[in-house]
Simulated scan of single mutants.
Amino acid sequence: MSIIPGSRHGAVIAAGVTVLFWASAFVSIRSAGSAYSPGALALGRLATAAVLLGVFALIRRVGWPARAAWPGILISGLLWFGGYMVFLNWGERLVDAGTAALIVNVGPILIALLSAALLHEAVPPALRLGIAVSFAGTVIVGLSMSGGGKSSLLGVVLCLLAAITYAIGVVAQKPALRHGSALQITFWSALVAAVALLPFAGVLAREAADAPLSATLNMIYLGVGPTAIAFTTWAYALARTTAGKLGATTYVVPALVVLMSWLFLSEVPGWFTLAGGVLCLAGVAVSRRSAKVKA
């Protein structure tokens, strides 16, 4: 659940773990979403994460967060942990994976803008260039993966709302991490979101009774890997670098989604898709150049 304190490359390793799990989430959401509705899937995922993180919090004797941490916990918990997951689950039912990845990856741009305006973080030229290059790669991946350009307007709006809530949640979480550990902030944020989604408990129970085992296992996996582990490693990295620089690393996600589809779903990507993935990786490498000194 944590990276070894004092490791010079700890933030980079933590960010890598996060994007790997978050990329796999797109595949699992597709599978679990066939049996679980958006709200029920989000509740099941967050309840799983909250229980797992709660056990670790008890073992590590993580107490009640400081008062100064609560605004960030509440905002990130309600908007990012809760709202983002519902919007993304719903959006992925209405648009193809390429379109969803393209729209959600507006998030890092919003993070850079919001962190500059609200957290007074610098946006160095290398970060701006890296964001531009990676976003171009994301557009290429999104266009190459889109199914003939047929997208639901509601699905596009939902994915855009997911990107907005994701960006606001990241920027809100950054100040909270000054007053608590990554595990503490992540656990309480997940718990806040799970409590907020309790109105879906009845739906979750009914759907779980009829869902195939594979869908339920995917929901549990979403709670363990992409949420409990990945959100904790993200918080660890966020506490050690700027929100804008860390947000840019998530541009690796589309490239990883392409690779995972290739390996696990036998979906061989075309050259157009591969070129976009390479651009995503190149942009992240450029954006991290200035981060090596300060991260």
Results as ranks from 00 to 15, higher is better:
G39C: 10
G39P: 02
A40Y: 08
A40M: 09
A40R: 02
L41C: 09
A42K: 02
A42Q: 04
A42G: 07
G44P: 04
G44Q: 08
R45F: 07
R45C: 04
A47P: 04
T48G: 11
T48M: 08
A50N: 02
V51C: 08
L52R: 05
L52T: 13
L53R: 01
V55G: 08
F56G: 08
A57D: 07
A57P: 06
I59F: 14
R61F: 07
R61K: 15
G63C: 08
P65H: 14
P65D: 06
A66Y: 10
A66I: 08
R67K: 15
A68C: 05
A68Y: 09
A69G: 10
A69S: 12
W70T: 12
W70H: 11
P71K: 14
G72N: 02
G72H: 00
G72E: 01
I73G: 00
L74K: 05
I75G: 00
G77E: 01
L78E: 01
L79V: 04
W80S: 10
F81L: 13
G82M: 04
G83N: 01
G83K: 00
M85I: 10
M85L: 13
V86L: 05
V86N: 00
F87Y: 12
N89M: 11
G91F: 02
E92M: 15
E92K: 02
R93F: 01
L94E: 07
V95F: 00
D96R: 06
A97I: 15
T99Q: 07
T99E: 07
A100I: 04
A101H: 05
A101E: 14
I103D: 01
I103L: 14
N105C: 05
N105I: 03
N105R: 06
G107A: 15
G107Y: 14
P108A: 15
I111S: 03
A112H: 01
L113K: 06
L114Q: 00
L114A: 04
L114S: 00
S115K: 09
S115D: 12
A116Y: 11
A116C: 09
A117W: 15
L118S: 07
L118P: 00
L118I: 14
L119Y: 11
L119E: 12
L119N: 10
E121M: 10
E121F: 06
V123M: 15
V123F: 15
P124G: 11
P124N: 10
P125F: 12
P125M: 09
P125D: 07
A126P: 13
R128A: 15
R128F: 10
L129N: 04
L129T: 13
G130A: 10
G130H: 03
I131V: 14
A132C: 11
A132Q: 06
V133R: 00
S134P: 11
F135V: 13
T138D: 13
I140W: 05
I140N: 02
I140S: 03
V141C: 08
G142K: 00
G142M: 03
G142Q: 04
L143R: 09
L143E: 08
S144N: 09
S144D: 13
M145A: 15
M145N: 04
S146D: 14
G147M: 09
G147P: 03
G148R: 12
G148S: 12
G148L: 12
G149R: 10
G149H: 11
K150C: 03
S151L: 11
S152Y: 01
S152P: 02
S152H: 06
L153H: 03
L153Y: 00
L154A: 15
L154Y: 04
L154D: 10
L154N: 08
V157Q: 08
L160N: 06
L160Q: 04
L160F: 15
